Simulated scan of single mutants.
Amino acid sequence: HVGCGRVAARYLEIFTRGEISGARLGHVCDIERSRADEFSRKSNARAWTDLETMLREAKDIDCVTFGTPSGSHFENARAALVAGKHVIVEKPITMRPEQAEELGKLARDKGLMFGVVKQNRYNPAMRALKAMMDRGRFGKLVLGTVRVRWARDMNYYSSDAWRGKFLSDGGVITNQAIHHIDALQWVMGPVKAVCAHGTARINDIEVDDTTVAILRFANGASGVIEATTAARPDDIEASLSVLGEGGSVVVGGWALNEILFWKFTVPEAADETAQLDHSQVIPTSYGLGHAPLLQDVVDALKRGEIEPPVNATEGTKSLSIIHALYRSMEDNGWVTVGTSSKRLGIGG
């Protein structure tokens, strides 16, 4: 595993508590020696401080997981793929869509797996919602919404130099709400156009800590995104709503882990216990989806398959929406998805 920052704690739990089988954590890498050594001490993995050296000298690596700063995903993932390693990277897949497409092609050409972590797709609540959508129970879709109300103050943004910058991070929609935007398009289908407003309302950063947006889905439904890290004093919620002519579902909780509302015009027996059956208690906002996702990665590789749970094409869908959102802010109007930001992943 490369990158021993915030999300690495979840990877440490997964590998040291036996949450997945068929793989072991053999090596950890971080540019800060203290972080790498601490992770190594807790996991018995060998510590490295240079990715290129690790890739060259550690002959027993099959797959590299990356939890490095967002702006480094492209270069780091490319280095691992060039070295012949399978790659799974935390969100965002890259900072720009064309980078993800390049990595996807590189992986295919070399016969390697390249995927991105979208752990909320593994939440029981989200899977139940997706199953109802796939069955057609919602009928004609009316509205799909996302609401992320989290608290991140300047201690968070100042904890690492790359945070809160267009070049290396992006704002609330890139770092926090990207998972929920992915979940929204995963369930509701492709987004055609967006109109957004974003601002750094409380935090002293160059990117947005608060964004609101209106969406037009390809199927004709409308959408709304409300995302902020300026909730005070604590995280409040991360919710997703789907409304259709056949019924409505709201998934909420800390990280899309609880069914809050579930009702359809044509009831079924299972509807009565849906909230109890599909809600999940989670310890942190990362949820519990990492372990089953990584287990699917391991199982696929052991079968000789290279298709990841969420491939580059899938991972780029939410990134393309986010780029359109930023371009809408830049142009002050409606933007078609597929139009990239002039600043995200570039700076300036």
Rank of each mutant, 00 (worst) to 15 (best):
L240H: 05
E305S: 14
V251I: 15
C63E: 00
Q295C: 11
P190N: 01
P69C: 07
Q295F: 10
F74N: 03
L301F: 01
Y122S: 04
A238P: 11
R149V: 03
V28M: 08
L215D: 01
R33N: 03
R33A: 15
H27N: 03
T284N: 14
G347C: 10
A77D: 09
T199P: 02
L276D: 04
C63V: 15
A83G: 11
G136P: 05
R137C: 04
V212A: 14
K342M: 11
F66P: 03
Q275G: 15
A312C: 09
P267I: 05
R35V: 04
S318L: 07
Q99F: 04
Q185T: 14
G136Y: 01
P190D: 09
T68I: 15
L276F: 05
D60K: 08
E307K: 15
A324G: 14
I259M: 07
K105A: 15
Q185F: 05
V28D: 07
Y326V: 11
S21C: 08
V281G: 06
L112N: 03
S341R: 08
V172I: 12
I181L: 12
S285R: 05
T339D: 12
A8M: 04
V89D: 02
E258F: 00
A270G: 05
A45G: 10
I202T: 13
Q280Y: 00
K302S: 13
A227Y: 02
T68N: 12
V2W: 03
A177L: 01
V148H: 05
G246F: 03
D37N: 09
L301Y: 01
P283Q: 02
W48H: 13
E101I: 06
A200H: 09
F217P: 07
D182P: 12
R6Q: 10
I225S: 04
P190Q: 01
A193K: 13
L260K: 12
G244N: 01
E206P: 13
I178S: 13
A9Y: 01
A221E: 00
V207R: 08
W186G: 03
I31G: 07
E19A: 15
V298L: 09
L301P: 03
Q99S: 09
C4K: 02
L344Y: 00
I236Q: 13
F39K: 04
D62K: 06
P308N: 02
A177G: 07
W262K: 02
R327Q: 04
T53I: 12
I181R: 04
K91D: 03
L55D: 02
G171C: 07
G304M: 10
E38N: 11
S248T: 11
S285V: 12
G67N: 13
D160H: 14
K118H: 07
G348L: 14
G170H: 01
Q275K: 15
L143A: 11
D153C: 06
L167F: 01
I31S: 11
L260M: 10
I20Q: 02
R149C: 09
A230L: 02
I88L: 14
D169F: 11
I322Q: 06
E206I: 11
A77F: 01
Q99C: 09
R33C: 04
I202Y: 10
F15K: 08
A300M: 05
H278L: 05
L243R: 10
K42E: 10
H278Y: 15
L106Y: 00
A36V: 02
F114R: 03
H278C: 07
E307D: 13
